[in-house]
Amino acid sequence: MAGVILSLAAVIGGNMLEGGHTDSLIQLTAFIIVFGGTLGATLVQTPLHIFLHALKRFRWIFFPPPMARSDIMKKMVDWSKISRKEGLLGLQAVADREKDKFTRKGLQLLVDGNEPDDIRKILEVEIDSFAAHEMNSAKVYEAMGGYSPTIGIIGAVMGLIHVMNNLSDPSLLGPGIAVAFVATIYGVGLANFFFLPMSNKLKMLVNDQVQYRDMLVDGMVAIAEGENPRSIESKLEGYLT
């Protein structure tokens, strides 16, 4: 939110310092052309289920999913201690209480006695599928950032056409041209202040999620191999940085 506020304050504040009026930047028609056109072009490019999923991921931009790596590391050390004392079947109660689906699946694979290599392969398929699915959401906002400036130019040209149709009235030329170029501001502004930063933010969050899951996989495999809890802790500490 701080980034959004700072960006808007810089643009609006700079306009005011130059003697401009904020009202001149508020044009509903230009916004409808740019935002609606961008949305439509993106819908043409994107399958509906991916587009709807991208809208759900909008929340991540301001409220990222929690990833307490130190907490999960402590949990895995505790799980390794349980497995060494009670065997892998002792983790069944832990798996039943686990809320995260990915973690619960890993624990269930341990309880079922799968080989370490099989556990890694199964969970890595889950990670690859997750990453591809979530990266598609980021690409939706990236596409919006690509279309928005072009739609803004279309809006500006449409405004200039309207100005040309009123050349007989000089009093309408100045305001008409100003309104036309507001569409360009909206197109470039939406792309660079919102859509492209949102896309990059989602990509970073997905990479963090993938690394978090990689940490879980390494921990699960180490438990399956019967490694010492201290050894597991030392191995996973690298993910905390």
Rank of each mutant, 00 (worst) to 15 (best):
R69E: 07
L28R: 03
G152S: 06
D96Y: 07
Q211V: 15
I119K: 00
E86F: 13
F102L: 12
S171E: 12
V44D: 09
F195A: 03
P175M: 14
E115S: 14
L88Y: 15
S199E: 02
V4M: 11
A131K: 12
G174A: 15
N192A: 06
G176C: 08
M1I: 13
P229D: 03
T150A: 15
Y147C: 12
D208L: 07
D169T: 15
K203M: 04
F195P: 00
T29Q: 12
A2P: 07
N166P: 09
L167T: 11
T46W: 09
F102W: 04
T103I: 15
G37H: 09
Q108L: 15
Y147M: 11
A180D: 03
V34Q: 06
A9D: 10
V34C: 08
V140R: 01
M215P: 00
K81T: 15
I32R: 14
G20M: 12
G36H: 13
V157Q: 03
E225R: 01
I26C: 03
G113P: 08
P66E: 13
L52H: 12
H133E: 10
P229L: 05
R120T: 10
F62T: 06
K101F: 12
F35W: 06
I5Q: 09
P66A: 13
K105E: 04
G13N: 10
G87W: 15
E237S: 02
L39G: 10
M135G: 09
V4I: 10
L172H: 10
R57C: 13
Q209D: 06
L8D: 07
G174W: 13
